[in-house]
């Protein structure tokens, strides 16, 4: 197991180098450079050239690449052009809101999705099942930016229950922090995630409930609660866990949209802003970072398998 985890962690290095190089090429091939953001609309080409020289962007691409790469292998992600601070520092600052929002969103998705799926399965082909699955379909189809704007309008403007946008750091005021993130997290958790989880849970529970060992458990005289929670659910949950793990990547994708709407200073907002500003170091750093989270989340899912299903071993 330990060997397996170490090996998986070592895979991170080539993945990050590959991702970083890929993003480096992509963003450098894209026309435009950071001067379009740093200088005003009306700057002349001479002013732009002077700025490029100051930023070292006049060097050939391979020179820039090797400079960036040699920094990277020393663990230095470089300095953000637009923020004028080290990329690693910018990422750490922005990790907190994104991380808390992702955890909240996943929790909301599970809290809605798993019980919904189980109830729908146990009451399958009844109107309860149909209502639950309709809600799930609704969540799956609804675009998250629309839902975000509508909920902001409803709870922020009309009802005035929650502050509309912004963020308070967790250590400053945990309650306020959660309040700020609640609606964005709900949007992320509900649209797409909870729907996928509930539909999958329903299908798996339904399938498991028809298995021989469930009939055996029931014939042993076990209570329905024990049958469902101990025998059926544990077996039905494996695919759901895969989806939850994989959701983390999707959540980061969704965070890009939701963070921009709700003005949450997280990784998603940094990513979008860096693309627009052609802030090469920040963008490369952020993508590498997201890739690392992806890999680590998948690793966490694999480890969870072992805990849930003793038949799985990574020896």
């Amino acid at each position: 197991m330990t060997v397996y985890v170490i090996r998986r962690l070592l895979y991170l290095i080539p993945i990050m180098i590959f991702v970083g190089t890929f993003v480096f090429l992509l963003i450098h091939i894209a026309p435009g450079d950071p001067t379009s953001y740093l200088l005003s609309e009306e700057a002349t080409e001479i002013q732009r050239q002077a700025m490029r020289e100051r930023l070292g962007l006049d060097q050939p691409m391979y020179v820039q690449y090797f400079r960036w790469f040699s920094q990277l292998i020393r663990g230095d992600l470089g300095e953000s052009i637009s923020l004028r601070q080290p990329v690693s520092q910018a990422l750490i600052q922005r990790l907190e809101p994104t991380f808390i929002m992702a955890i909240l969103a996943l929790s909301i998705a599970c809290l809605i999705g798993i019980p919904g799926g189980i109830i729908a399965a146990l009451k399958h082909d009844t109107y309860i099942d149909q209502i639950l699955m309709s809600i799930a379909m609704f969540g799956l189809c609804i675009p998250n930016f629309w839902l975000a704007l509508m909920l902001a309008l409803l709870f922020g403007v009309y009802l005035g229950w929650v502050p509309l946008v912004g963020y308070t750091p967790f250590l400053e005021d945990p309650v306020q922090c959660i309040i700020y993130l609640l609606i964005p997290a709900f949007v992320l958790g509900f649209s797409g995630r909870s729907a996928a989880i509930s539909r999958l849970t329903r299908a798996n529970v339904l399938e498991t409930m028809g298995k021989d060992y469930i009939r055996t458990a029931r014939s042993k005289g076990l209570s329905e609660r024990v049958v469902i929670f101990k025998h059926a659910l544990r077996n039905a949950m494996l695919p759901t866990i895969t989806v939850i793990g994989a959701s983390l990547g999707g959540l980061l994708g969704g965070a890009v949209i939701v963070e921009n709407i709700f003005s949450i200073p997280g990784i998603g907002q940094l990513l979008v802003a860096s693309v627009h500003r052609r802030d090469y170091p920040a963008l490369q750093g952020a993508v590498i970072f997201v890739a690392a989270i992806f890999v680590l989340a998948n690793l966490a899912v694999d480890i969870t398998y072992v805990l849930i299903d003793p038949r799985i071993r990574y020896d």
């Binding site: 946008v165 921009n260 709700f262 907002q269």
Partner: peptide
């Protein structure tokens, strides 16, 4: 405070944020 989305920016003034 940054409010990149103009609709949200307007709503923030409406609500006094």
């Amino acid at each position: 405070l940054p409010f990149p989305d103009s609709t949200v920016r307007a709503a923030a003034v409406e609500t006094g944020s």
